[in-house]
Measured scan of single mutants.
Amino acid sequence: KELVSALYDYQEKSPREVTMKKGDILTLLNSTNKDWWKVEVNGRQGFVPAAYVKKL
């Protein structure tokens, strides 16, 4: 599985998104959309802005 690192804090703005803190390591589930990537963090799945994470 592919991992990404959070470059910035992000506070979810809808139920489809997830909150992350800078430095968090997230499991990348889907990166086909260039703007929003689906990740899993702390057992929750949702979307984060692609520009806020980088692949490890």
Score class of each variant (00 low, 15 high):
Lys1Gln: 12
Lys1Glu: 11
Glu2Cys: 15
Leu3Phe: 14
Leu3Lys: 11
Val4Cys: 15
Val4Lys: 01
Val4Gly: 14
Ala6Cys: 13
Ala6Pro: 02
Tyr8His: 11
Tyr8Trp: 11
Tyr8Glu: 11
Tyr8Pro: 01
Tyr8Leu: 11
Asp9Ile: 02
Tyr10Gln: 00
Tyr10Leu: 02
Tyr10Ile: 01
Tyr10Pro: 01
Tyr10His: 04
Gln11Val: 14
Gln11Leu: 14
Glu12Gly: 15
Glu12Lys: 14
Lys13Gln: 14
Lys13Ser: 11
Lys13Val: 08
Lys13His: 09
Lys13Ala: 12
Ser14Lys: 07
Ser14Val: 05
Ser14Glu: 08
Arg16Val: 11
Arg16Ala: 13
Glu17Asn: 05
Glu17Arg: 04
Val18Thr: 06
Thr19Arg: 06
Thr19Trp: 04
Thr19His: 05
Met20Phe: 11
Lys21Met: 11
Lys21Thr: 09
Lys22Ile: 07
Lys22Pro: 03
Gly23Gln: 03
Gly23Tyr: 06
Ile25Leu: 10
Ile25Gln: 06
Ile25Val: 12
Leu26Tyr: 09
Leu26Val: 08
Thr27Val: 15
Leu28Lys: 01
Leu28Tyr: 02
Leu29Val: 11
Leu29Trp: 05
Asn30Glu: 15
Asn30Cys: 13
Asn30Thr: 08
Ser31Leu: 05
Ser31Pro: 06
Thr32Leu: 10
Thr32Arg: 10
Asn33His: 12
Asn33Cys: 10
Asn33Phe: 08
Asn33Ala: 08
Asn33Arg: 10
Asn33Thr: 07
Asp35Gln: 12
Lys38Arg: 11
Lys38Ala: 09
Lys38Leu: 15
Lys38Ser: 08
Val39Glu: 00
Glu40Val: 06
Glu40Pro: 00
Glu40Met: 09
Val41Glu: 03
Val41Tyr: 11
Asn42Met: 08
Gly43Leu: 05
Gly43Trp: 03
Arg44Val: 10
Arg44Tyr: 06
Gln45Phe: 08
Gly46Gln: 01
Gly46Leu: 04
Gly46Asn: 00
Val48Pro: 00
Val48Asn: 00
Pro49Arg: 04
Ala50Thr: 05
Ala50Trp: 02
Tyr52Lys: 07
Val53Arg: 00
Val53Asn: 00
Val53Pro: 01
Lys54His: 12
Lys54Met: 14
Lys54Gln: 14
Lys55Gln: 10
Leu56Thr: 09
Leu56Gly: 07
